[in-house]
Design a protein around this nucleic acid. Structure first.
Length: 527
RNA sequence: GGCGCCGUAGCCAAGCGGUAAGGCAGUGGAUUGCAAAUCCAUUAUUCCCCGGUUCGAAUCCGGGCGGCGCCUCCA
């Protein structure tokens, strides 16, 4: 009963600043109310890539999701610091560099640039990209502390973490040490005390890149870089640690063990894990016979399965914004089925918003893309004194409710779609596209449009006008097309539809779409 | 074998104790010379199956069946 009352109170206040945000925490396996470690500030650390080969779509899921979380928290008036690490030293990099016959710096630099370029095109705004090789000193210090405290031991040039020394080992992935011992691989060398112990430092083999250390020349083990860089940039206890579901064990489990043993403090407060990209072979799905084609393996996208899709390839077919929209169209914890058909299907919703943006430009005489909307959460600045505005307010409330509930972008996007339909309907009913439109109706439309802008900006969408949008073009192309339209108009007036259709079809073939409206014919380039 | 996740219309997908959002595709209609775009209407007595708890379950519990992830590098 009491709980019901509290819920009702929260319900009434969905639109206020710093509303209650619920987050699913992998550590506790339930949704918790978000409370930052330091009031008003939020640190987010996301596990980035090991830079040894070109990024694929799966690498973008986390960044897009966590960038959206960042935007939403910033909207809720938190000062957010978003860190994505770059692991630029690892066996895989060494092997790949050897294969390509180049230095590891050259390889990691090239791959990092590729990765960052794609994040930028997806509108992902990262505050810090720490590189593992820049934090070797910090790592050595941490390893030293762990040895001093009895949680780690040097053996044969390597240093291992003793998992039996940490009572909390296994708490994130819900594993028990005994089970890990039983299931461990036989290849385990005698130098480890326990089969589940993991390397903090690896002694270098001849010819490998290495750094000097008290235990001999070597390089860091996997995991240590995240523990070190997150605390260096966000503090020993920080708010949100994210990554793909496949990193829960052993990576995140080991990070917790190292950091909590070293600092004696809680490491990350909330652990969020995104679902993994699944590859779907549509052809197979609709029942082609086995062996009809060289089918790629279905399931998780991974290099070992050979079913990855590089971004460079993907972006030649879809805009980064479409990919972002696609990634946000479902809940972040669910796996996403990937296929071109799926993206194509989802993309329609985005196109509809862009089409509305064109209408907005015509009605308001102002670009939707540069429209100013509130960037901080606050109650609506206007009265809901009409059915239309009441609906707009309700859509906004529902959108925020979805986002407050574990960043449910899929639900939020559905509401955006409803808002778009409402705006289109209102514009149609009130004939806003005509010069006779009433100022007061335009004003209402404007209010609704600003809300749309506000909501869509949180998702990092519709931030820029599409590259090939024709709206502002006043060059030669525009003049030629105006002439074509004029000629077609004359043909239509004299009922010469064969000619008018020839003009329209001909233009369509070269990528120009004509649309007849009450106020004349518009043209736009195929996107 | 151990630890988890998931199964909602043709497809995608919200809802997670109070009587099934939304999108795509389809169908019908408005608009159009015909289109395009847009709008309207329509598509699950039912949420994999069987039990149980409850006044009430897609939602909670138990048992099946099916799919998937991790336990080894992976976002």
């Amino acid at each position: 009963m009491i709980q019901k009352l509290e819920t009702a109170a929260a319900e009434a206040d969905k639109t206020s600043p710093r509303a209650e945000i619920r987050i699913y925490n992998t550590l506790t396996r339930q949704k918790e109310t978000f409370e930052p470690v330091v009031p008003g500030k939020v640190g987010i650390y996301l596990c980035g890539p090991t830079v040894y080969s070109a990024s694929h779509i799966g690498h973008m899921v986390g960044p897009v999701i966590f960038d959206t979380i960042k935007r939403f928290l910033a909207f809720n008036d938190y000062a957010v610091s978003f860190v994505v690490n770059i692991t630029d030293i690892d066996d895989k990099i060494i092997n790949q560099a050897a294969k390509e016959g180049c230095g590891i710096e050259e390889l990691s630099k090239r791959v990092t640039e590729d990765y960052q370029k794609h994040l930028k095109s997806l509108q992902v705004e990262v505050d810090h990209f720490p590189f593992a090789t820049k934090y070797i000193d910090h790592m050595l210090k941490m390893i030293g502390t762990l040895i001093e405290k009895g949680h780690a031991y040097a053996a044969d040039g390597d240093v291992y973490f003793d998992v039996t020394s940490f009572a909390g080992y296994g708490k994130l992935s819900n594993r028990r040490i005994e089970e890990l011992m039983a299931g461990a691989r036989k290849e385990v060398s005698d130098i480890k005390r326990n089969a589940a112990d993991f390397a903090l430092w690896k002694g270098a083999k001849p010819g490998e890149p290495s750094w000097p250390s008290p235990w001999g020349n070597g390089r860091p083990g996997w995991h240590i870089e995240c523990s070190v860089m997150s605390s260096a940039l966000l503090g020993e206890t920080f708010d949100i640690h994210g990554g793909g579901l496949d990193l829960v064990f052993p990576h995140h489990e080991d990070e917790i063990a190292q950091s909590e043993c070293c600092n004696g403090k809680t490491y990350a407060k909330y652990w969020l894990h995104n679902g993994l990209m699944q590859y779907t072979n549509e052809t197979r799905k609709i029942g082609a016979r086995e062996g009809d084609f060289a089918s790629q393996e279905e399931g998780k996208m991974s290099k070992s399965k050979g079913n990855i899709r590089t971004l460079t390839d993907l972006f030649s077919k879809f805009s980064p914004e479409t990919i972002r929209y696609f990634l946000l169209s479902t809940h972040y914890r669910s796996p996403i089925n990937f296929s071109d058909e799926r993206i194509q299907e989802v993309a329609g919703g985005l196109t509809k918003i862009h089409t509305l943006a064109e209408l907005v430009a015509r009605v308001l005489g102002e670009s939707f893309y540069t429209l100013k909307a509130p960037t901080k959460r606050a109650p609506l600045a206007w009265e809901t004194n009409s059915p239309f505005l009441t609906d707009v307010a309700e859509y906004r409330r529902r959108y925020l409710e979805y986002m407050d509930d574990d960043f449910n972008t899929g639900g939020a996007i559905a509401v955006v779609g409803e808002l778009v339909t409402a705006l289109n309907r209102f514009a149609g009913d009130k004939n806003l596209d005509a010069s006779s439109a009433k100022a007061e109706d335009k004003e209402q439309f404007r209010k609704g449009t600003v809300v749309l802008k506000e909501l869509v900006s949180i998702l990092g969408l519709l931030l820029d006008a599409p590259k090939n949008a024709a709206a502002g073009d006043d060059g030669l192309l525009s003049k030629v097309l105006e002439l074509m339209i004029e000629l077609r108009k004359e043909a239509r007036q004299s009922k010469n539809f064969a000619l008018s259709d020839r003009i329209r079809d001909g233009l369509a073939q070269i990528g120009v779409t004509l649309q007849d409206g009450k106020e004349g014919t518009r043209w736009k380039l195929e996107s």
